[in-house]
Design a protein around this nucleic acid. Structure first.
Length: 264
DNA sequence: ATCTGACCCTGTCTGC
DNA sequence: TGCAGACAGGGTCAGA
């Protein structure tokens, strides 16, 4: 499910219904998700409140009057509000207020909750929505990189927030083939990639994100971006620009979609 | 430095 | 209808 746009939609949904009053209790239903849960610190949220929730890349940051936590949704993690709690399979955390509950559910448990560390983002790249992306910062720095641009975009150390779907969409719009070596990119290519990164992600946010299978946001609504994908999942379907059949290849064990005619 | 494949898990879909 | 296998948006890691 969640790449940057989906996480942004989740954040907005959480902020809309977030109670301002004190937390009555935090229940945890298991010791770990992808990583061990900070059980002690979560329990200490009792009588504290959540000040706000922010986002950086695919991370949510829960800022409380006690301490800060980060929430990563992995593949299938999601948060939901319920005024009366109805337990569901794969519920792992329940934050309880007087008249509201916030529940974290994650079937595959690839997501995680951790104590926020101040230098967490030190080793990560810029966020395309929160930060300024400039070609002049990428072009000289990665002039010798032997990796391909698709793999590069997925690496959160380079740029935050791009996942498998939007990497294909961004490269299609930028007219760059996914297997192109990063060292072969010209300044102009970087400009296209970074501009399209911002455009594609912003469009996805405007449309409420992409919904595959049963993904829904905090309020239970589906996004609409999946109806605007130009290449992702479009194998053998004519390219929207030139009518050449869209190809699907595996790069770093993940499927990539592109137009061999439009993308060079 | 980069790539490959295995692994972390469960749910869903397809084909036999 | 049942079952095996493939596959899925997130990631890390060891070994080549």
């Amino acid at each position: 499910m969640p790449e940057l746009p989906e996480v942004e939609i989740v954040k907005q949904g959480l902020l809309k219904s977030l109670p301002k009053d004190e937390i009555q209790e935090v229940q945890t239903f298991r010791k770990d998700l992808r990583f061990p849960l900070p059980l002690k610190e979560l329990a200490q949220l009792k009588n504290h409140s959540i000040k706000t929730i922010s986002r950086r890349g695919k991370f949510l940051i829960l800022e409380t009057t006690s301490r800060h936590f980060i929430s990563h949704l992995g593949m299938t993690g999601h948060w939901r509000f319920e005024s009366t709690y109805s337990p569901l399979k794969h519920d792992h955390i329940r934050i309880q207020w007087n008249s509201q509950n916030l529940i974290y559910n994650d079937p595959r448990r690839f997501g995680y909750i951790l104590n926020y560390e101040i230098d967490l983002f030190k080793n990560f790249g810029p966020d395309p929505i929160l930060d300024i992306l400039e070609a002049k910062n990428f072009y000289p720095r990665y002039k010798k990189s032997e990796t391909n641009i698709k793999t590069f975009l997925l690496n959160q150390k380079n740029i935050l927030g791009i996942g498998n779907i939007y990497a294909s969409e961004i490269l299609f719009k930028a007219k760059i083939k996914p297997l192109k070596k990063v060292r072969q990119l010209k300044l102009q290519d970087w400009e296209s990639i970074l501009v399209e990164t911002k455009l594609v992600l912003n469009k996805a946010i405007t449309l409420g994100g992409s919904s595959m299978r049963d993904y829904k946001n905090v309020e239970g609504d589906k996004g609409d971006m999946q109806n605007h994908w130009l290449v992702y999942g479009k194998q053998s379907i004519p390219c929207s620009v030139c009518k050449t059949a869209i190809k699907n290849i595996t790069i770093s064990n993940r499927s990539s979609y592109f137009c061999s005619q439009c993308q060079k």
